[in-house]
Amino acid sequence: MQFRYFALLGLVGLLIIPKIGQARPVSYPGGITAMFMNNGDVNSAHVHYSPTAKYSLGYKYEHWRDRDFNMHALQLNNLIKRWNKKETQANFYIKSGVGVAHSLDDSVTDKNDFAAYTGLALDWESRRFFTSYENRYTDAGDIDDFFMQSARVGVAPYIGDYGDLHTWLMLEVEHSPKSDDKFTITPLVRMFKGVHLVEGGVSNRGDVMFNYVVRY
């Protein structure tokens, strides 16, 4: 278990250090984004600051209901590569975090443990179609460790102009190998206007998904 801690810490360190080394004077004042995600497994809040369009750094709180633990983490999102084309854009990110997990399970004696996670995220979109994939491995010491991945496809029923209300119909498939229900399928609607984005859906397990993102 200790080896995994150091391996994860090393990985996170490798991801962070080059960015610090590459840090340059900030010409882009950056944006602050607040994300609130809720589904059948987890409630989370993530606030991050983007000094450049290449990375963001922020605080993330997660409450894993069935897994019986909370986590407070410092999260770094790195844009590894962006492909800008005339009609499409694709992105490759690595998201990593380190922090503290707190068990809510009465049978656990050591309530707090070091926690870290890392994973990659890929997306591709045009104004009509959207697809994405992301995964994450989380190690919360003696409290829990798990891998999960998810993919989405989406289509915009109409093409809105800049400033309009934009609507996407999406389907998300989540795979959690260690869960009782290994696959969760959630049809959802994404809507955004200006700096506000909301998503809502109900999974095949009957769980409600509700996400809200605001960008300043």
């Binding site: 882009y28 004042p29 944006g31 499409t88 045009s126 934009h166 700096v195 984005l197 960008r215």
Partner: peptide, 16 residues
């Protein structure tokens, strides 16, 4: 510009 496909993301242009 290339990559200008998402309204939500393009807010960055206005901001800067």
């Amino acid at each position: 510009v290339n990559g200008l496909v998402c309204d939500f993301c393009a807010r960055a242009v206005e901001k800067v």
